[in-house]
Design a protein around this nucleic acid. Structure first.
Length: 604
DNA sequence: TCAACAATGAGGCAGCCC
DNA sequence: GGGCTGCCTCATTGTTGA
């Protein structure tokens, strides 16, 4: 194993790249001597960042024109917003885009906005937009039907599409039902224009592509401008459709979980597939890697797949890598050939992982693997109840007692630590099972409860490292990483353990506790690159991403596992799917990834 | 105030039987 | 194929007690 910290040089002694430093100083977020600026951005190891003077009007126009918006539309949007508030300007632009689109999708890339009828139409459209915007501001006074129409328009559907769907589904239909209806209509249209690709009516029909982009502020906007995934409608070959149909459920195209859950292969069961054909729009740069729970509500993975450039999710259970189950789906555009695992192999059974438990393990407990590692653990009172239920029996307890004990042990991942004595896993044992260094989450004022919570929400490092391992040959000099919803830094740890130097890491993590854990790990492992962290994905707008990309030279990898709170089966209160409060942040992952792709493409 | 604890349910799927 | 059962699941909320 190559250790990326072989030099062991302290970060204080690093001669930071001057150009990078200057670029970072141009970030629009003010920063002074403090490591954490008021906007929540912290820079570790990159020296200090200073405030910037902001964009001039013409520069601002140029900036958004560069993103593919027509100049006149940009000027109009700037007029309506505070010049310094690029996020609201972008939101307005995306709203304009959503409203001006016709049912026929725009060409995927608008190369020259100034020379077409497009701009003239925009002027007309903008006059209508004024009233629309006012309506939006006063949405409280709208009827429920109007609000629904407005919601659908913000999601990128035309008013005509929305109205027809509402007629089809009835006045009480939910947004989800309406979007399904619109998608179905779109699918029918798509089928009609591609008859040559569907020689048999039983052949799988193309899935409707998302024609809406979430703008990160609670609304969806149609971003036809340079939104590469729209090209997939035109570029996907029949071969790709056949590939998809192999993995999709034949009848309804709903993604089903594979059995066994080993994705494109695991170390113990090597690669079944040596090559896969990615949709053209999914091919990097940058490489991307997205993770979430495999057992999400029905349709969630179909949506994730459609947004992430139609890349087929790879479902893997981490029990193939360690002694605990962790069923996750991963959408990525990484090579899948010549993957290699972290060495040494982690223990794959409970007894290998926790050898001291073997002595006390009763013969009637046949478990060899632990279940999923949750964010909370069994209580001391529960283990006491179990002890009392067992102490009356010298030998094996009767079957009903065995069943009670085994059910509780499975439910709470309890292990045997003494005669008739079970206990939940200690945090450092969870760290070990997940592939993190010992005491990774310890210290820094974090409570035991929060350690379990942070660990329960993290990557299984060995699994992720196996998938990322192919990057080692591609980036021998190290990578620039954009890590969204970083948590306790599972991706960073995986790359480090693979021996892939981390040149620059831009990390976004809401939890201060988790940011501290990553920063502490960064310092303790003597990383020689720069760690820039943000506390909110909303801070990563196009402007800031462009600055980051310019200063760092682009991102090689965009990693993220957006919150699963509203997807997880354990959630009894708000399992609302991707529309849930937290899990909707998936759309921010897509928004940011797509912005990075667009900006990097523009620069090449 | 905060950590620990206990109570809380449902979606989805596999396996089985008819 | 349809119905039934059992199992599994990156959790949330309110209460208790130190």
């Amino acid at each position: 194993m190559v250790d990326g910290n072989a030099s062991g040089e302290a970060s204080d002694n690093i001669d930071w790249d001057t150009d990078d430093e200057l670029e970072i100083q141009n970030f629009p977020v003010p920063s002074s001597s403090s490591l954490m600026n008021p906007g929540g951005e912290a820079i570790v190891g990159a020296g200090e960042a200073s405030s910037s003077t902001g964009c001039s009007n013409s520069k601002l126009i140029q900036h958004f024109v560069g993103m593919g918006f027509p100049e006149k539309m940009v000027a109009k949007a700037i007029e309506e917003n505070d010049e310094g508030n690029t996020e609201s300007i972008l939101e307005t632009l995306l709203t304009y885009s959503a409203l001006e689109d016709t049912p026929q999708q725009q060409p995927p890339v608008i190369a020259d906005h100034c020379s077409s009828e497009y701009d003239e139409n925009i002027l007309d459209d903008l006059s209508d937009l004024d009233s629309w915007s006012k309506d939006e501001e006063n949405s409280d006074s709208l009827s429920s039907k109007e609000k629904t129409l407005l919601s659908l328009a913000n999601m990128g559907y035309t008013v005509e599409e929305a109205s027809m769907a509402m007629n089809r589904c009835g006045p009480d239909a939910s947004i989800a039902e309406l979007t399904d209806s619109i998608c179905a209509a779109q699918m029918a249209n798509t089928t009609n224009v591609r008859p040559q690709e569907l020689p048999d009516e039983h052949e799988p029909k193309p899935k409707p592509r998302p024609n809406h982009i979430y703008n990160g502020n609670g609304t969806h906007s149609n971003g036809t401008h340079k939104r590469k995934f729209f090209e997939s409608e035109l570029l996907n070959s029949k071969k790709q459709m056949e590939y998809e149909s192999m993995i999709m459920n034949g009848d309804d195209e709903t993604i089903r979980l594979p059995v066994p859950m080993i994705g494109y292969g695991v170390p113990t069961d090597p690669c079944l597939t040596l090559h896969r054909s990615l949709p053209e729009t999914a091919i990097g740069p940058p490489y991307f890697y997205y993770e979430n729970v495999a057992l999400a509500p029905k349709g969630v993975w179909d949506t994730i797949k459609r947004f992430l450039y139609d890349v087929e999710p790879e479902f893997v259970d981490s029990k193939c890598f360690c002694a605990a189950a962790r069923k996750r789906g991963y959408v990525h555009n990484l090579p899948i050939r010549n993957r290699f695992p972290l060495l040494p192999f982690p223990p794959r059974t409970i007894h290998e992982a926790l050898p001291l438990t073997k002595k006390w393990w009763p013969s009637w407990d046949s478990r060899t693997k632990l279940k999923f590692l949750q964010t909370c653990i069994g209580s001391a009172k529960l283990t006491e109840r179990i002890r009392k239920s067992l102490e009356d029996w010298d030998d094996a307890p009767p079957s009903h007692v065995q069943k009670y004990v085994l059910d509780e042990c499975r439910k709470w991942n309890l292990v045997w630590v003494g005669r008739n004595k079970v206990a939940p896993l200690e945090p450092d044992e969870v760290e070990m099972l997940l592939g993190f260094p010992k005491n990774h989450t310890r210290g820094g004022g974090i409570s035991r409860t929060d350690r379990y919570k942070s660990l329960g929400n993290s990557f299984q490092v060995d699994t992720v490292a196996y998938h990322l391992s192919t990057l080692k040959d591609i980036f021998p000099g190290g990578i620039n990483l954009l890590s969204l919803f970083s948590g306790i830094g599972g991706a960073e740890v995986a790359l480090h353990r693979l021996g892939i130097p981390l040149k620059n890491v831009v990390s976004v993590e809401k939890s201060e506790v988790n940011r501290n854990i990553v920063r502490s790990w960064w310092e303790q492992t003597n990383q020689q690159g720069n760690l820039i962290d943000f506390d909110d994905v909303q801070q990563l707008n196009g402007d800031r991403l462009e600055h980051l990309i310019n200063s760092l030279g682009g991102f090689d990898l965009v990693v993220g596992g957006s919150p699963c709170n509203n997807l997880a089966g354990s959630n009894r209160h708000s399992r609302d799917g991707l529309d849930g409060k937290e899990s909707a942040l998936f759309y921010d992952y897509f928004r940011i990834l797509d912005l990075v792709k667009c900006i990097m493409e523009k620069q090449h």
